[in-house]
Design a protein around this nucleic acid. Structure first.
Length: 115
DNA sequence: TTTCTTACA
DNA sequence: TGTAAGGA
């Protein structure tokens, strides 16, 4: 990739890593699903977390969910994630890096639970 | 060359 | 969602 190892990637790298078009990535940002950083020149810079988030969005999109549903799910997921105690999960990274793992099905259900 | 915004034969 | 235009 153009910026391997830095931890921040331009949109071209994100297209390759997520399989989403730059058009879609920018559109999702306008819809409030992601908030990438900007360089002084105005170019977007995505973190690994942003990319993981986009991959989850793509999976839900491919599963037939509309953007509205996806946005709600992610907001619920992340709001609940902040409220989870260390008793439920080993670490936040473990959850973020695992795209709906079967081994953590119970925790996943808890994260997606509507409050 | 890559990315950005705006706009739609 | 894709793509063209025009600038950075």
């Amino acid at each position: 990739m153009a910026s391997e190892g830095k931890g921040l990637y331009p949109i071209g790298d994100v297209e390759k890593k997520t399989g989403l078009s730059a058009r879609q990535i920018r559109y999702y940002e306008s819809m409030g699903l992601i908030s990438p950083a900007r360089t002084s020149g105005g170019q977007r810079r995505y973190t690994d977390g942003d990319i993981l988030r986009l991959i989850r969005i793509k999976q839900m999109k491919d599963s037939g969910f509309d953007l509205k549903s996806i946005k709600e799910k992610i907001q619920i997921f992340e709001r609940n994630l902040q409220e989870l105690s260390v008793d439920d999960i080993s670490s936040e990274r473990a959850v973020l890096s695992s795209l709906f793992p079967v081994s953590n099905r119970a925790v996943l259900m808890k994260l997606l639970e509507k409050k």
